[in-house]
């Protein structure tokens, strides 16, 4: 069975495969070598700049800490259950207390928090940007009206938005029993403000550059406004919308780390900041682990969007990379 699979692989294919594996591998080893050699030359107040080996050690430390924390949590709940069971045994009507575990968030918990936060911000951005983009793309006048505002707000750094967002969230989001923490809301909104622009602009351009004949088809059929959007405009600008969404998500992820640092949202940004403030000899290594994790996750988010685009966009001829 397997033989038949390999039979079709020619020596040309094999060469191509080896190249595809070998070239990145060579580049990676050179990169690690240069890093290792130059890191050894840099002395900081927190000790020597960590090389690849130190970073690997910190990564496994972080993993071990995560496992240890999980064990502690399991033990806590086991103790609590045991205690409550005993109480109930002595007196069936006894009031029992169930407390949730309040241990510190591990590196992996923080990754999850970051992902949830960035998705919230990205979703809100998409829900705002796509409809506005469609309406703007349909009307030349509206496009001219909105364009200066968009161009003005687009380059604003998340660090500039954050104080404003923080103040507004503190003033507006006031409840006794908050469902979400303020830091989470602030970070998500900052992500929204920074990452909605590429989607908005690309949607508007996609809609406005739509094939004029398709527009005429819609007119001849007398499609209603909503049907026209849903059946003609939206599908025809889908490739451009996806391009915008991909750009938005990468920007959102980049912005999130900065937002979390300042808003103290318990995600990767806070992790980096806390390690920096902590100032132990391990800190730099742990920060570099975070940097690599941020890069990897950003890469995976982009690939996920690419997969979605391949799945949902009709334009299979487009070269996606």
């Amino acid at each position: 069975m397997y033989a038949s699979v390999f039979k079709n692989i020619t020596s040309e294919d094999l060469k191509a495969m080896i190249r595809a594996l070998l070239l990145p591998l060579i580049a990676m080893s050179i990169f690690l070598g240069v890093w290792s050699a130059s890191a050894a030359q840099v002395q900081t107040s927190l000790g020597q700049l960590p090389g690849p080996a130190d970073v690997y050690k910190q990564a496994s430390n972080l993993y071990d800490e995560h496992i240890a924390e999980r064990d502690k949590e399991a033990a806590f709940y086991a103790r609590q259950e045991e205690r409550n069971a005993k109480k109930l045994e002595a007196n069936a009507d006894a009031e029992i207390k169930v407390r949730s575990y309040t241990g510190k968030a591990t590196f992996f918990d923080q990754i999850i928090t970051s992902l949830i936060t960035v998705f919230t911000g990205f979703m809100i951005a998409s829900l705002i940007a796509i409809p506005i983009g469609i309406v703007t793309g349909l009307s030349n006048g509206l496009y001219q009206a909105i364009n200066p505002i968009v161009q003005l707000l687009k380059p604003v750094s998340p660090l500039a938005w954050l104080p404003i967002v923080t103040m507004i969230v503190s003033a507006v989001y006031v409840t006794d029993d908050p469902m979400f923490s303020k830091s989470y809301v602030t970070s998500a909104i900052t992500v929204t403000l920074c990452c909605m622009w590429p989607t908005l602009i690309n949607t508007a351009v996609g809609v406005s550059t739509m094939d004029k004949d398709l527009n005429n088809v819609s007119k001849v059929l007398r499609l209603g406004w909503l049907t026209n959007i849903y059946k003609i405009v939206l599908p025809s600008s889908m490739p451009m919308i996806f391009t915008g969404l991909r750009l938005s998500l990468s920007i959102g992820w980049m912005v999130l780390i900065a937002a979390e640092m300042l808003a103290q949202n318990p995600g990767l940004g806070k992790f980096v900041w806390d390690e920096f403030q902590n100032g132990s000899s391990n800190s730099l290594g742990r920060i570099i682990v975070a940097v690599i994790a941020i890069g990897l996750i950003g890469f995976m988010l982009d690939r996920t969007m690419l997969l979605l685009q391949r799945r949902f966009s009709w334009d299979k001829t487009a070269v996606l990379r």
Partner: peptide
């Protein structure tokens, strides 16, 4: 109308 370049919806 039958348009010159068919103008079918490609999706």
């Amino acid at each position: 109308v039958v348009f010159q370049n068919h103008s079918l919806l490609p999706w």
